[in-house]
Amino acid sequence: MIETVDLTVFAGEFSLARVNLKIPAGSYCVLMGRTGSGKTTLLEAICGLKRIVSGQVLIDGEDVTYMKPGERGIGFVPQDGSLFQTMTVWRHLAFALQIRGWSKADIQQRVEEMAALLEITDLLDRKPHGLSGGERQRVALGRALSFHPTILCLDEPLSALDYDTHAQMIRLLKRVQQETGVTALHVTHNIMEAEQLADRRLHIVDGQIVEHVEQPVKAELQPPGKEGGPGAP
């Protein structure tokens, strides 16, 4: 479970004040909002990448507000994947495990598991510059899930993908989340993505979290590939 209590974050001239959020364990929550509304800032604060001014971040009931990012048990998938350019796909999947001092045999087993789950076994020897957009995001997802995190934070992970890859990744994300049971917080401004993935949809409006209110007519008017469709900016 992810919970924020009166969370206040500053990011330059921008700030989020007294944000309260509760995401039940094992659910797939999609957080939506306009560009500049603070969705990514909130995600970064939960991951430990933004300085928190006041309030609390709780993960499964434990206060992690001032914990280092690596101690929170959160897998993070950024917008562009942010793969490490000098490492092979195998090293990406093994990276967090090597940091944690796993044995070679355990690392190999886990890498094979993740590669099979994400269907990237054939790519293990490749480096990022030889991968397509969808493959990069699969690797980023595998890297984030490799160390069995309880929480998965995704920052617009599908925004740069073409229509077909986008649809494949939606199915993959749903399947992976169900198989791993991880609690997912997915930030996007793509309505279709939210409809297809979310158990729960939240909006960030004027720095506050509000529950999604269904607006079917408006949603139906969104043509695919245009505003709100796959590949939307």
Binding site: C47, G48, L49, G70, F76, S82, F95, I99, R100, F147
Partner: peptide, 10 residues
Amino acid sequence: RREQVALTLG
């Protein structure tokens, strides 16, 4: 971002 990802990985 790459360093930040590395931080979340431990």
